[in-house]
Nucleic acid binder design. Structure first.
Lengths: 231, 231
DNA sequence: CGCACCTTTCGGCACGGCCCGAAACGTCGG
DNA sequence: CCGACGTTTCGGGCCGTGCCGAAAGGTGCG
């Protein structure tokens, strides 16, 4: 009877405080227990309990450094699950954005953000579409890079060697655009490259990113993306 | 703040009785409220409450026929989520099978079963591997059918027309084999064909299936699968 | 029409969880 | 060595929710 295990595992996500923490951790970085407690607006002692359960359940991994307790998502599979839950949770009645500040933050997130370790939002969709129309990515029969796509990554200095069980390319449902964007090893490598090469930078401390002028030039050059498409 | 929605949605899966029902519904068929109540070993009144919540949350769809209330999973996305939860729930310490009967049922399920609407277990893995080694399915750069793969389906009398948002091919993590098997529209079409053509039949009322002698012949003929590989 | 059968509504009970504050523990820096 | 800070443990209060039984709708069949 795996039902008991399934229920216990799902219960880890079935609390608003833990969900707030997990959504924050979707940026792929390690947070301290105190940061997560303040972010979720609960007492430190409460956060300790939550983090303990999430670590025990295999959702998070922890790393102790001195008096700090750093936690991060346990891996891509967990990140994918959180994204899927977030994507399926909404689709009921259309909801109006809460406040003006939330709407503004929402627009920045909708323009571009990281989704664990790859690009999402309008930016992620635009890049994925450009890869597809240029014959570097196939979406008609599944979701996979073409041989020309492998060359394109190699030209960027990114060697995509199969390692571990993570697929090279995978479609990740974008819940602001309602369409899939590139995830998997290729999506992670491309996002890392974009951040390192200065194509885009993080806004504040959240998951939102914005494309730099240099990034606009580079995207037009390597993928034929016009700056207008990113606004 | 989508955290509240995420938590409320996850809570739908965070109960053993509901999880038992959802796992049963993974066979893709419609069940009546009474059947699910008996299967989960709860009173009919309790089942009514659970089903009401699952339907309201968009996890199930219902269809009333006379004095019966038929429910089924709301769609492939929900099925995928349940499978993912089930797959990630276990991987802690290795667990020994409970009883002999459970072990026997487990072996039948491990040999072959349906996973919502496609084939899983050793049967699903074997078919997926055969498709891959024959160049009909690519897994190295993602998970997609090749052009030759499309022809192979057409030769079987299966026209794979893109319709809706469901991808043609998708990898679904098999939690008995720990490897992906073919899901998506192609996986569903192949499973339906296998059942219609008598390649395999359902065992009892569950999700387990077994390959018929005619099925062994057919699989050897169209995919070069030897019967030994299915045992 | 009346009797099964499936399903639903309603009260009431019990268990488990989430939360906090106070106090203790451990680490870092002066 | 002492104070500041991050984290943890413990106890207690509170709310949500799962469960059932009894009774009431509805539906179909004889």
């Amino acid at each position: 009877m795996g039902a008991r295990d399934l229920a216990a595992f799902a219960a880890l996500f079935a609390d608003e405080s833990r969900a707030t923490m997990l959504l924050a951790l979707l940026d792929g970085r390690a947070w301290t227990a105190g940061e997560l407690a303040r972010h979720a607006r609960v007492a430190p002692s409460t956060a300790t309990g939550h983090l303990g359960r999430l670590v025990a359940g295999g959702v998070l991994t922890e790393e102790r450094q001195g008096r700090h307790r750093y936690v991060r998502l346990a891996g891509p599979a967990v990140a994918q699950l959180v994204e899927e839950l977030a994507g399926l949770a909404g689709p009921g009645p259309d909801e109006a954005p809460r406040s003006l500040a939330a709407a503004s933050a929402g627009r920045a997130m909708a323009r571009g953000r990281t989704c664990y370790d790859h690009l999402a939002g309008r930016l992620g969709i635009t890049v994925t579409d450009a890869l597809t129309t240029r014959g570097l990515l196939r979406q008609d029969t599944g979701f996979a890079l073409t041989d020309r796509g492998l060359e394109w990554f190699a030209d960027l200095g990114i060697a995509l060697v199969p390692k571990g069980r993570r697929p090279l390319a995978r479609g990740c449902l974008d819940w602001t655009e309602r369409r899939p964007h590139l995830a998997g090893r290729a999506g992670a490598a491309l996002c890392a490259h974009a951040l390192e090469a200065g194509w885009c930078v993080r806004i504040g401390s959240g998951r939102a990113v914005k494309v730099t002028p240099a990034g606009e030039t580079a995207l037009r050059h390597v993928l034929g993306i016009e700056a207008d498409a990113l606004r």
